[in-house]
Simulated scan of single mutants.
Amino acid sequence: MTSTVRDLIDVAAQSAVDAGRLIRQRFGGPMEASTKEAAHDVVTGTDLAAEELIRAALGGAAARSTVVGEEGGRQHDATIGAEDPVWLVDPIDGTYNFVRGIPFFCVSIGLRIGGHTVGGCVYDPMREELFTAADGCAWLNGVQLPVRTAAPSAPPLVLCDIPNAGGPPATTETDLLAALLTAAADVRRLGSSALALAYVAAGRADLAANADVYDWDTAAGRALVTATGGGYLSHPDPLPTRRRGSFVAWAPAYPTLGRAVGEALHPDCFAETR
């Protein structure tokens, strides 16, 4: 592969900004939304248009690129080689916020090569914040994010949408998770896993966790968190694109809390990944 990971992420970042410009122009205007599997899981024409824009850019970023998008699925028929880029694209992570006029959503593009998550970008079009990760480093609007080692004043801030809207009745695991987080942390529900992960990487939050997520929701954020020294667990690993899974990610100062949340989500199923 002739393009470096940084080169590929630069292309992805520009496509995210271009898609974000389209999304920002349409925010607050008339739109038609249709539901997918659940009433809160919606798609708009803007999702579709943004993904098509991103696909066009990524398809030309490198030979044999495979794009896996939330709205269009996988678009590449050939066998994926060990050095072939695989892109995980969510054109609007937080579509329900977008539809309701809540300015908290983002474009998320993760990059996987040889089965490993090697980079990604998350772009918040309303705040014009571009989070990128490549080669083990992460940046916010071009300024490198530091590796955090010290814990802020307690309690830790956790971004978590569990229990999920429209999900099954609470289980022993979700009850345990809720009790754990209530006892140990200050919890916020924001409605975008990708931005939650970016905020952990940037030091705005200390832990993010969700069930009911797909690979394109977290691939970019995973790269951001691990590039800033944090930890990430998912079940399964990598997360699927045809059914939902669970993840937890934490800042470097909170490995114990992160693993405890992982065990509460799926006892005996989580294994640490990088």
Rank of each mutant, 00 (worst) to 15 (best):
Gly120Tyr: 07
Ala151Asp: 11
Arg189Ala: 13
Ile80Pro: 10
Thr66Pro: 04
Arg64Ser: 07
Val213Asp: 00
Gly114Met: 12
Pro252Thr: 05
Asn141Phe: 09
Ala82Gln: 10
Val187Tyr: 09
Gln75Asn: 03
Gly231Gln: 03
Arg112Thr: 07
Ile162Glu: 10
Asp175Gln: 14
Pro255Ile: 08
Phe131Gly: 03
Gly81Tyr: 08
Thr241Lys: 00
Thr132Tyr: 04
Leu22Thr: 09
Leu195Glu: 06
Thr46Tyr: 05
Asp212Gly: 00
Ala184Leu: 11
Ala220Trp: 12
Leu239Ile: 00
Gly167Trp: 10
Asp47Val: 05
Ala13Ser: 07
Gly142Trp: 03
Gly110Pro: 12
Ala82Leu: 15
Thr218Asn: 07
Ala38Met: 02
Gln25Cys: 01
Leu180Lys: 04
Cys137Gln: 13
Thr182Asp: 13
Ser234Lys: 03
Ala63Asn: 11
Ala211Glu: 14
Gly221Val: 02
Glu272Asp: 02
Ala56Glu: 15
Pro252Leu: 07
Gly166Ala: 06
Asp10Cys: 04
Ala205Asp: 08
Arg21Asp: 12
Ala211Cys: 09
Gly110Cys: 13
Pro155Val: 09
Pro152Ala: 13
Gly72Leu: 15
Asp10Trp: 03
Ala202Trp: 01
Cys160Val: 12
Val89Phe: 06
Leu157Ser: 10
Glu173Cys: 15
Thr132His: 02
Asp77Ser: 14
Leu130Ser: 02
Asp90Ile: 06
Pro125Val: 05
Leu197Glu: 01
Cys137Trp: 05
Thr218Lys: 06
Thr117Phe: 03
Ala178Leu: 11
Cys137Met: 08
Asp7Met: 11
Ala154Thr: 02
Ala50Met: 04
Tyr199Glu: 12
Arg222Tyr: 06
Arg24Met: 08
Arg274Phe: 04
Pro163Cys: 13
Ala12Arg: 07
Glu83Thr: 09
Arg55Ile: 02
Arg26Ala: 14
Gln144Phe: 04
Ala211His: 07
Leu157His: 13
Ala196Asp: 08
Arg188Tyr: 05
Thr2Ser: 15
Gly29His: 10
Glu128Pro: 08
Ala223Thr: 06
Thr79Phe: 10
Gly245Lys: 10
Glu37Ile: 00
Gly60Ser: 01
Arg100Leu: 13
Ala253Phe: 10
Gly20Arg: 08
Ala208Pro: 15
Pro85Gly: 13
Ala62Val: 08
Gln144Leu: 11
Asp217Trp: 01
Leu224Asn: 05
Ile80Glu: 14
Thr35Leu: 04
Thr228Arg: 11
Ala19Ile: 09
Arg189Gln: 12
Thr95His: 08
Phe270Lys: 04
Leu88Gln: 15
Ala194Gln: 01
Cys269Lys: 13
Ala61Lys: 05
Ser108Arg: 07
Ala138Trp: 03
Glu37Leu: 03
Asp41Cys: 02
Ile80Arg: 15
Ser15His: 02
Arg100Gly: 06
Asp7Leu: 11
Phe270Asn: 05
Ile162Ser: 11
Leu197Ser: 00
Ala264Pro: 03
Arg64Met: 02
Gly136Pro: 04
Gly120Trp: 02
Val118Ile: 06
Ser3Ile: 04
Glu83Ile: 03
Trp216His: 10
Gly115Asn: 06
Ile102Ser: 12
Pro156Ile: 09
Ala208Arg: 14
Asp77Ala: 14
Pro156Met: 12
Val67Cys: 04
